[in-house]
Simulated assay, not measured.
Amino acid sequence: MDITLSEEIDPEFLEIVQCILDDAEFKKLNYYKQHLKTTRFMHSLNVSYVSWLLAKRFGCDAAAAARAGLLHDFFLYNFGEKRDTKELQAFYHPKVAAQNSADRFEISEKERLAILSHMFPLGPLPRSREAWLISCADKLCASSELFHFQIFLAKGNRVVVSPT
């Protein structure tokens, strides 16, 4: 799968997340729908970019916000698929995403906790400013996607994903 990112995307952001974006397992997120009209890959990229922008603006750890924002929904199953747990998706998927992220990438404890708390108030209270930003960015992006607004990186075809 080829992913083409426009030159308009800040190279500082790309430097932080490129190793994740290049990962074959992470790219599989493009095969899963998220919020009706987008993919989990695009949603995660939007959350990452918004979190990174906000973190820079508010003097937070922008790299941790970008990485945890990108990995917050790193699970490779559809919402309706049968799972080995009776736990609701809203509580279950952050744990799977955090475990997948820790298994696949070197993530910090701050990043792990931000992934686990991104569903607040349905999950644990975010413990860092970066975790709060990711939780807010996730809700902003999800709302925009549900209402079919093309936002952030999807707008203007700044990111184009094509199968190989």
Score class of each variant (00 low, 15 high):
residue 52 W to D: 00
residue 67 R to H: 05
residue 17 V to A: 09
residue 20 I to S: 07
residue 62 A to V: 04
residue 9 I to H: 10
residue 55 A to Y: 04
residue 56 K to H: 04
residue 12 E to M: 11
residue 48 S to A: 15
residue 57 R to T: 12
residue 62 A to I: 06
residue 62 A to M: 14
residue 48 S to Y: 07
residue 48 S to E: 07
residue 46 N to V: 08
residue 41 F to L: 12
residue 25 E to F: 13
residue 29 L to S: 02
residue 33 K to S: 14
residue 62 A to G: 01
residue 12 E to H: 09
residue 27 K to C: 15
residue 52 W to Q: 01
residue 63 A to W: 01
residue 29 L to K: 15
residue 33 K to Y: 14
residue 23 D to H: 10
residue 61 D to A: 05
residue 64 A to C: 15
residue 68 A to T: 10
residue 14 L to S: 11
residue 58 F to S: 14
residue 30 N to T: 09
residue 50 V to E: 05
residue 22 D to N: 02
residue 59 G to P: 08
residue 26 F to V: 13
residue 32 Y to H: 07
residue 64 A to R: 03
residue 44 S to V: 01
residue 13 F to H: 04
residue 15 E to G: 05
residue 47 V to A: 03
residue 55 A to H: 05
residue 25 E to Q: 11
residue 49 Y to H: 10
residue 55 A to T: 01
residue 43 H to K: 01
residue 40 R to H: 09
residue 65 A to Y: 00
residue 34 Q to L: 10
residue 13 F to T: 01
residue 51 S to T: 14
residue 41 F to Y: 10
residue 35 H to P: 03
residue 39 T to V: 06
residue 14 L to Y: 07
residue 55 A to P: 02
residue 67 R to N: 10
residue 65 A to T: 04
residue 33 K to M: 05
residue 19 C to S: 15
residue 29 L to D: 02
residue 35 H to G: 11
residue 66 A to M: 10
residue 47 V to D: 01
residue 47 V to W: 00
residue 21 L to I: 05
residue 46 N to T: 04
residue 45 L to I: 09
residue 31 Y to Q: 12
residue 57 R to I: 06
residue 34 Q to C: 10
residue 8 E to C: 07
residue 21 L to H: 06
residue 55 A to S: 07
residue 28 K to N: 08
residue 43 H to I: 04
residue 43 H to M: 05
residue 34 Q to I: 10
residue 31 Y to T: 12
residue 24 A to P: 06
residue 8 E to D: 14
residue 24 A to L: 02
residue 20 I to L: 02
residue 36 L to D: 08
residue 46 N to D: 13
residue 67 R to Q: 11
residue 68 A to R: 04
residue 10 D to Q: 06
